[in-house]
């Protein structure tokens, strides 16, 4: 029973190619963390509620604990490590979280960042209510969310500024 057929999975993560053979039952969250060694994606509940394991699959936010690694075959993955690689300065979204004290223990934070990235792309000038609704699929037990809302507002503004500057 334990020896299951293995399946190839090949794709890109944060722009880098990967190729492995995996058991089909291996969760994408475990694959990213333990096979690819990108441990910034965290696992909080493994039943799709807490959002700590959120990553981008072809640009859309998904719970990596509710996908099998084989399902990432031929797809593009992005994780928190892709936001600012190596010694690069923090992404404006990350910078805003620091500026506004939008994290405490930091365990849930990568999931928040990955949920927010496509949200802010789709809605660059969200209202507070829209921000709160966008956050509601991610649980944070430390902050009480207020500072996270501030961080998203700040990030939206600096991303808009960057966009304007880039367009000139």
């Amino acid at each position: 029973m334990a020896n299951q057929a293995r399946f190839p999975v090949r794709g890109t993560i944060n722009g880098e190619e990967f190729e492995r053979e995996v058991e089909p039952r291996l969760l994408l969250s475990d694959f990213i963390r333990h096979e690819l060694g990108l441990t910034g994606t965290h696992v909080g509940c493994e039943h799709g509620v807490c959002g700590a394991c959120t990553v981008l699959l072809d640009g859309e936010s998904v719970r990596s604990c509710l996908l099998f690694a084989v399902q990432a075959n031929g797809r593009k993955l992005e994780t928190v490590e892709g936001l600012s690689q190596g010694d690069a300065p923090l992404h404006p979204l990350q910078e805003a979280f620091r500026e506004e004290h939008g994290l405490q223990c930091g365990f849930c934070t990568p999931g928040f960042l990955m949920s927010l990235l496509p949200f802010l792309e789709e809605n660059p000038s969200p209202t507070d209510q829209e921000i709160r609704e966008a956050l509601s699929g991610n649980l944070c037990r430390c902050t009480g969310y207020d500072h996270i809302v501030n961080a998203v507002r700040t990030a939206a503004s600096s991303l808009r500024d960057a966009e304007t500057a880039g367009a000139e």
Binding site: G48, G51, L57, E60, V62, R63, L66, G137
Partner: peptide, 9 residues
């Protein structure tokens, strides 16, 4: 229906 991360899948 749930949250965007769920509806995406």
């Amino acid at each position: 229906v749930a949250h965007p991360q769920i509806r995406n899948r």
